[in-house]
Design a protein around this nucleic acid. Structure first.
Ligand SMILES: Nc1ncnc2c1ncn2[C@@H]1O[C@H](COP(=O)(O)OP(=O)(O)OP(=O)(O)O)[C@@H](O)[C@H]1O
Length: 771
DNA sequence: GCGGTGTACGAAATA
DNA sequence: CGTACACCGC
C-alpha cells in the first residue's frame, strides 16, 4: 500500500508531494499525468488529508471511473468525490434543491429535450420556425449560458429583431424548464455557480467541505467551470489543475484555453510543474506528434521527448473507399495479432465522426475480429430507449411535460398531440401533476372518443406504476415494459427492425440490473439521473477481448499499443467545417490528430480512403494536409488504390513500398486521374463556366389563395379573420390551402402557435372582427 | 384529431 | 442513406 515514490521522476515527485497551495501541472501526452494525479491523491491521504475533503473533477465519466479505481488501489480513498463537473452540479442541486426552489427529483434535459422545449416556446410565442430555426435558438441559448448571460441580459443587449426573438425564446424556454422542474446540462453548472456566487454562507460551506480540489483536463474548461473552480477554491487555494494546451479539443463547447494559460495569474505563487518525458510511445511516434503540433502558431513551445526505442515507422495506408479501408484495417489487425504478439484489447481504431464507424465495423466483423464501440452512437439516445426512459422520467418527475408527451405517444394509445396538450393545460390550470391529471375524471371528461379511452388506459397503467416501489430500479423498468406492452408494440410498429429494438430494450433492463448491483440501495431516481448524465452503457463483459472503436475525442486520455486513425483526409481530419467556415479552427484540428497519434505506444497507422459515401453520394478526397507536416522519413506509405491519390504526400514520391503482406490484392485499374495529373474535375467547378449556369432568382411566389374554395359551412371565412377553436381558443387565420375533400387553414392561436387544420374537422367559430 | 405515408433535408466532437 | 416532419386521407 505504501507509495514507492522512486517510481516517479523528479518532476512528477514534485507535483505529487505538493499538497497545499495552487499547483499547475502542464503535462505532455504520455508524461504520466494520470499517474501523478492518482498518486498525489494517495499521497495526500497518506499525509492525513481526509478523503472526504477531496474533490477531483474529470472531464468524462470514463476518466472519473478509472481514476476512482486507480486511487482506490493505492490508498483508502472512500469518501473522496471523484466526478465530472456535471455530476458535481447535479449532486449540488439535489442537495440544495430546497433553497433553489427546485424539486428534489428534477429532470435533466438533453439536447433533444431542449429542442422540444424550444419548439414549444416558439410555438407559444408565435415564432415561425422557418424564419428562426429552433436549432439556431438552441445554439444561441447554449452560447449565452456558457457566457453566463441571463435572458434578461440577452434582451437588453439585443441588437436586432432576430436577437430580440431569441431573447424572448430564451426567457420562455427558461420558464418552461422551471415549470417542468428540469435543468439542461448548462444549468447543472450555471445554477450552482449562481448559488455559490450569491450566497457566501453556502460558498463557505462547500469550500470548507472540499478543501482540496483537483481539476483534470483544465485546458478544456469553459467559463462556467472556471468560475466554479474559483468559487470553490479561491479562498483556501488548494487547487491543483492539470492539462496540456496542445490537447485542447473542445473549444466548440465553450472551452477556453486561456483558463489554463492564466492560472498562474489567477492564483499567485502557483507551483508550476512541466512534464515532458513521454513514457508511452516510441521515438518515431513522439517525433511525428511533436513535429505536427509545432505547426501550430499560437502555441507556447514545449518539449516532448522519450527514451524509448525508435520503433516502427508510421504506416500510411491509402485505400479506395471506406469499405476498402475497413478491410485493410482488419487485415492489418490480423497481422499484428499473428506476428507481433498484439492482442485484440491492445488495438484501437479512431475516427473523426461517429458515422465513420459503420464501414470499419463491417470490415472487422467480416474478418471475424471482435470489437466494442466506446461511447457509441449513444445507446440512451435510441428511440426505443428514449421512450422507455420517458416513462421512468415521468414516474420520477410527474411534472415533466416532455416526458409525459413522449410516454403517452409511445406506445401509441390513441391520444394524439392535441389531446395530450389538453391534459397538460388542464394539469397546469389545476396546479396538479400530470399523473394525477390523467387519472382525474374531470380532466378525462374534457376528451371523448378514442382519445378519452386511450387516456384512461394510459392513466391506469401509469397509476399502477406510480404506486410501485422505486427500488430497485430494475423492477420498475421491466414493469414499464410489460405493463405498456412496449415490446409487442415495437414489433407491430416496426417489423423490420423490431427484433433489434426489442433487444435494445432488453439491454436496458440488464443495464439497470448492473446499476442496482453496483449501487445497492439506489433508487429509480438515481438510475434516471445516471442515465441522464452518462451516455454510454455499462457493457456486460468489460474484460472482453476486443478491438476498441471510438471517436478521436473520446480517445483522449487513453493509450493502446496499436492505433489506427481512419479517414486522414482533408474534409475529415481536418474536418470540412474547419477548412471552409470562418469559425473553423484548423489548429484545433491539428491538436485532435496530435491527441490521436499520441495514444499509440508502438504501432501507428493512418488510413485514407480516396472515395467516401456521404449522403448517398460519393465524394473524392485528398490526403490530409497534416500528413505533409509529418517527417516523411518516419512514414511508410502503402498504396492500395493503384495510384488514385496521385503523387506521394508532401511532394515526396512514395517510397518503394516494403513488401507487404497484402500486395496480392487485385487492385482495379485506376479509371481516373493519373499519377501526376491534377484531378480533371477539381478546380473546374469554380470556373466561370459554371457561374453562368447559375439560376436566375426565382420569381416572387404567387399570392396565396385568399378565399376558401368549396362550399363549406365555414366558407365565409377569410384570411385575417379571428376565429375561436374549442381547444386552442382564439386565433387568426393566416392562409388557406385547398385539399381533397375540403380546405385547410393555417391559424395562429395566441398561446399555442400555428396550427394547420382541416376546416371540416376543426369546429371553428368565427368571431366578428372588431372594427 | 389521429395516424399513415411521402419527401426534403441533413450529420463534428460531449456532459 | 436515414430521419424528421409536412401533408393528406379518414
Ligand atoms: N515515471 C514513470 N516511469 C515509467 N513509466 C511511467 C512513469 N510515469 C508514467 N509512466 C507510464 O507512462 C504512460 C502514460 O502515463 P499517463 O497515462 O499517466 O500519461 P498522461 O500524461 O496521463 O497522458 P495523456 O496526457 O496523454 O493522457 C503510462 O503507461 C504510465 O504507466
Amino acid at each position: 500500500m505504501a507509495l514507492d515514490l522512486s517510481l516517479l521522476n523528479p518532476a512528477q515527485r514534485d507535483a505529487v508531494m505538493h499538497v497545499d497551495g495552487p499547483l499547475l501541472v502542464i503535462a505532455g501526452p504520455g508524461s504520466g499525468k494520470t499517474r501523478v494525479i492518482t498518486w498525489r491523491v494517495a499521497w495526500m491521504i497518506e499525509q492525513g488529508v481526509s478523503p472526504w475533503s477531496i474533490l477531483a473533477v474529470t472531464f468524462t465519466n470514463k476518466a472519473a471511473q478509472e481514476m476512482r479505481e486507480r486511487i482506490a488501489r493505492v490508498a483508502p480513498s472512500d469518501g473522496a468525490r471523484i466526478c465530472t463537473f456535471h455530476s458535481f452540479g447535479a449532486m449540488f442541486l439535489r442537495a440544495e434543491h430546497e433553497r433553489l426552489g427546485l424539486a428534489r427529483d428534477f429532470s435533466i434535459y438533453d439536447e433533444s429535450d431542449q429542442l422540444g422545449l424550444i419548439k414549444k416556446a416558439c410555438s407559444e410565442l408565435g415564432i415561425d420556425k422557418d424564419t428562426l430555426a429552433p436549432r439556431e435558438i438552441r445554439h444561441a441559448i447554449g452560447e449565452a449560458k456558457n457566457g453566463g448571460i441571463t435572458p434578461h441580459h440577452y434582451l437588453s443587449n439585443a441588437r436586432s429583431w432576430r436577437e430580440e426573438k431569441i431573447a424572448a425564446a430564451y426567457a420562455k424556454y427558461q420558464d418552461l424548464l422551471l415549470g417542468n422542474n428540469a435543468c439542461d446540462f448548462d444549468d447543472l453548472l450555471l445554477r450552482p455557480v449562481a448559488a455559490l456566487r450569491d450566497n457566501s454562507e453556502l460558498r463557505e460551506r462547500y469550500a470548507n467541505r472540499y478543501r482540496y480540489i483537483l481539476v483534470d483536463e483544465y485546458q478544456d474548461t469553459n467559463a462556467v467551470q472556471y468560475e466554479l473552480t474559483r468559487l470553490l477554491g479561491g479562498t483556501h487555494r488548494n487547487v491543483c489543475v492539470t492539462g496540456d494546451p496542445d490537447q485542447s479539443i473542445y473549444s466548440w463547447r465553450g472551452a477556453d484555453i486561456t483558463n489554463i494559460l492564466n492560472f498562474e495569474k489567477d492564483f499567485s505563487d502557483t507551483r508550476v510543474v512541466v512534464l515532458g518525458h513521454n513514457y508511452r510511445s516510441t521515438k518515431n511516434i513522439v517525433s511525428a506528434a511533436d513535429a505536427l503540433v509545432r505547426n501550430n502558431v499560437s502555441r507556447k513551445s514545449k518539449d516532448l521527448f522519450t527514451d524509448n526505442e525508435a520503433g516502427h515507422n508510421i504506416r500510411v495506408v491509402m485505400t479506395q473507399n471506406e469499405t476498402h479501408e475497413g478491410i485493410r484495417v482488419a487485415a492489418i489487425v490480423k497481422d499484428l495479432i499473428e506476428h507481433e504478439g498484439i492482442d485484440y484489447n491492445d488495438v484501437a481504431v479512431f475516427y473523426r465522426t461517429n458515422a465513420q464507424s459503420r464501414a470499419l465495423e463491417q470490415g472487422l466483423r467480416e474478418a471475424g475480429i471482435p470489437y466494442v464501440i466506446v461511447g457509441s452512437v449513444e445507446f440512451y439516445k435510441r428511440k426505443e430507449i428514449v421512450d422507455v426512459l420517458a416513462w421512468l422520467r415521468l414516474l420520477i418527475n410527474p411534472t415533466d411535460e416532455q416526458a409525459f408527451g413522449r410516454a403517452i405517444a409511445n406506445p401509441g394509445c390513441g391520444v394524439g398531440e392535441a389531446s395530450a396538450a389538453k391534459i397538460v393545460a388542464a394539469a397546469r390550470a389545476r396546479g396538479i401533476n400530470l399523473i394525477d391529471a390523467v387519472r382525474d375524471p374531470d380532466v378525462l371528461a374534457l376528451l371523448r372518443g378514442k382519445p378519452a379511452a386511450g387516456a384512461r388506459a394510459f392513466g391506469e397503467i401509469v397509476g399502477k406504476l406510480a404506486a410501485m416501489p422505486k427500488t430497485p430500479a430494475t423492477g420498475i423498468v421491466s414493469q414499464v415494459i410489460s405493463l405498456t406492452g412496449y415490446e409487442s408494440w415495437i414489433m407491430r410498429d416496426d417489423p423490420a427492425r423490431g427484433l433489434e429494438r426489442v433487444e435494445n430494450v432488453q439491454e436496458l433492463v440488464s443495464d439497470a440490473a448492473i446499476f442496482d448491483e453496483t449501487n445497492r440501495g439506489a433508487t429509480l431516481a438515481d438510475y434516471v439521473e445516471r442515465v441522464s448524465l452518462i451516455n454510454d452503457i455499462d457493457k456486460y463483459d468489460p474484460g472482453k477481448r476486443a478491438v476498441s472503436l471510438m471517436t478521436l475525442h473520446s480517445a483522449k486520455g487513453l493509450e493502446f499499443p496499436a492505433v489506427f486513425i481512419a479517414g486522414v483526409e482533408d474534409g475529415s481530419i481536418p474536418h470540412m467545417r474547419s477548412i471552409t467556415g470562418d469559425s473553423g479552427n484548423l489548429e484545433e484540428e491539428r491538436r485532435l490528430l496530435y491527441v490521436g497519434i499520441t495514444r499509440a505506444k508502438r504501432f501507428l497507422h493512418l488510413t485514407l480512403a480516396r472515395h467516401r459515401e456521404q449522403f448517398g453520394q460519393s465524394t473524392r478526397n485528398s490526403p490530409s494536409r497534416f500528413l505533409r507536416e509529418l517527417p516523411q522519413e518516419l512514414l511508410a506509405q502503402e498504396d492500395h488504390t493503384g495510384g488514385l491519390f496521385g503523387v506521394g504526400l508532401g511532394g515526396v514520391k512514395p517510397a518503394a513500398v516494403e513488401s507487404l503482406p497484402f500486395d496480392d490484392d487485385v487492385e482495379p485499374a485506376s479509371d481516373d486521374d493519373g499519377a501526376a495529373a491534377p484531378d480533371p474535375w477539381e478546380g473546374a467547378d469554380t470556373g466561370p463556366g459554371l457561374r453562368l449556369l447559375r439560376k436566375e432568382p426565382l420569381p416572387a411566389e404567387p399570392p396565396r389563395p385568399e378565399i376558401v374554395p368549396g362550399g363549406m359551412v365555414n366558407a365565409d371565412l377569410n384570411v385575417g379573420d379571428r376565429v375561436r377553436h374549442q381547444m386552442f381558443g382564439v386565433g387568426k387565420i393566416l392562409s388557406f390551402t385547398p385539399h381533397a375533400g375540403g380546405t385547410r387553414a393555417r391559424i395562429l392561436f395566441t398561446g399555442w402557435g400555428e396550427k394547420n387544420m382541416a376546416l371540416e374537422y376543426a369546429r371553428l367559430e368565427r368571431i366578428e372582427p372588431a372594427r
